[in-house]
Simulated assay, not measured.
Amino acid sequence: MEPVSGATYVIRLCSGELRRWRFEGVDVRGFGWWLDEETGFGFSDASLMYAWEIVELADDG
């Protein structure tokens, strides 16, 4: 699934934990930027140190 800027997704971490991340878009280097809605922290694909996958578009996304 290709994420859409501004949409919120349900993400499954390698631990099995489900999180809600909003896709903020892609920067000039091609890295996707995300916002963890629970913590308020933003991060890029390049900074992630664990496996994860998009499960689905959040109901309110």
Score class of each variant (00 low, 15 high):
residue 13 L to D: 08
residue 59 D to C: 15
residue 25 G to R: 04
residue 32 G to C: 09
residue 51 A to M: 13
residue 2 E to Q: 10
residue 16 G to Q: 06
residue 44 S to C: 10
residue 60 D to M: 08
residue 59 D to T: 15
residue 45 D to E: 12
residue 32 G to K: 09
residue 31 F to L: 08
residue 60 D to V: 07
residue 47 S to Y: 06
residue 31 F to Q: 12
residue 30 G to P: 02
residue 3 P to G: 06
residue 57 L to D: 09
residue 57 L to V: 12
residue 1 M to H: 09
residue 42 G to V: 11
residue 50 Y to Q: 13
residue 40 G to R: 04
residue 10 V to Y: 03
residue 49 M to S: 15
residue 46 A to E: 05
residue 11 I to R: 00
residue 2 E to L: 11
residue 46 A to P: 08
residue 51 A to N: 15
residue 59 D to M: 13
residue 7 A to N: 08
residue 49 M to H: 13
residue 56 E to I: 12
residue 3 P to M: 04
residue 50 Y to A: 15
residue 36 D to T: 04
residue 45 D to W: 07
residue 10 V to S: 09
residue 25 G to C: 02
residue 47 S to Q: 07
residue 10 V to W: 10
residue 12 R to M: 06
residue 57 L to Y: 05
residue 36 D to W: 01
residue 53 E to P: 07
residue 4 V to T: 02
residue 34 W to Q: 01
residue 16 G to R: 08
residue 56 E to M: 10
residue 36 D to L: 03
residue 33 W to T: 02
residue 6 G to M: 00
residue 11 I to N: 00
residue 51 A to F: 13
residue 41 F to L: 08
residue 28 V to F: 10
residue 21 W to L: 01
residue 15 S to F: 09
residue 53 E to C: 15
residue 56 E to C: 12
residue 21 W to P: 05
residue 11 I to G: 03
residue 28 V to K: 12
residue 21 W to R: 06
residue 46 A to Y: 07
residue 31 F to I: 04
residue 22 R to C: 00
residue 1 M to I: 12
residue 1 M to K: 04
residue 9 Y to S: 00
residue 28 V to Q: 09
residue 53 E to H: 11
residue 3 P to H: 06
residue 44 S to H: 08
residue 14 C to H: 14
residue 24 E to C: 05
residue 51 A to E: 14
residue 58 A to R: 13
residue 25 G to N: 00
residue 33 W to M: 00
residue 5 S to A: 07
residue 20 R to A: 07
residue 10 V to M: 01
residue 13 L to A: 07
residue 32 G to F: 03
residue 29 R to A: 08
residue 19 R to Q: 11
residue 42 G to E: 12
residue 59 D to F: 09
residue 55 V to R: 10
residue 24 E to G: 04
residue 22 R to W: 00
residue 47 S to D: 11
residue 15 S to T: 02
residue 28 V to N: 14
residue 35 L to F: 01
residue 32 G to V: 00
residue 54 I to Q: 08
residue 50 Y to P: 08
residue 21 W to F: 02
residue 53 E to M: 14
residue 11 I to E: 08
residue 23 F to K: 01
residue 2 E to G: 01
residue 46 A to G: 13
residue 32 G to A: 06
residue 5 S to D: 07
residue 40 G to P: 05
residue 25 G to S: 02
residue 10 V to H: 09
residue 19 R to V: 04
residue 53 E to N: 15
residue 37 E to W: 07
residue 16 G to V: 12
residue 38 E to K: 09
residue 13 L to H: 12
residue 50 Y to H: 14
residue 49 M to D: 14
residue 14 C to R: 15
residue 8 T to K: 04
residue 48 L to I: 15
residue 50 Y to E: 12
residue 29 R to I: 05
residue 59 D to E: 15
residue 13 L to R: 13
residue 13 L to E: 12
residue 60 D to L: 10
residue 47 S to L: 10
residue 4 V to H: 00
residue 47 S to T: 00
residue 16 G to F: 10
residue 7 A to Y: 06
residue 40 G to K: 06
residue 15 S to A: 05
residue 48 L to V: 15
residue 43 F to L: 11
residue 33 W to R: 01
residue 41 F to G: 07
residue 13 L to G: 02
residue 6 G to P: 02
residue 9 Y to N: 07
residue 61 G to N: 09
residue 45 D to K: 05
residue 11 I to Q: 02
residue 25 G to M: 02
residue 44 S to Q: 05
residue 61 G to F: 11
residue 29 R to V: 03
residue 7 A to F: 01
residue 52 W to Y: 15
residue 54 I to K: 00
residue 59 D to V: 14
residue 23 F to C: 06
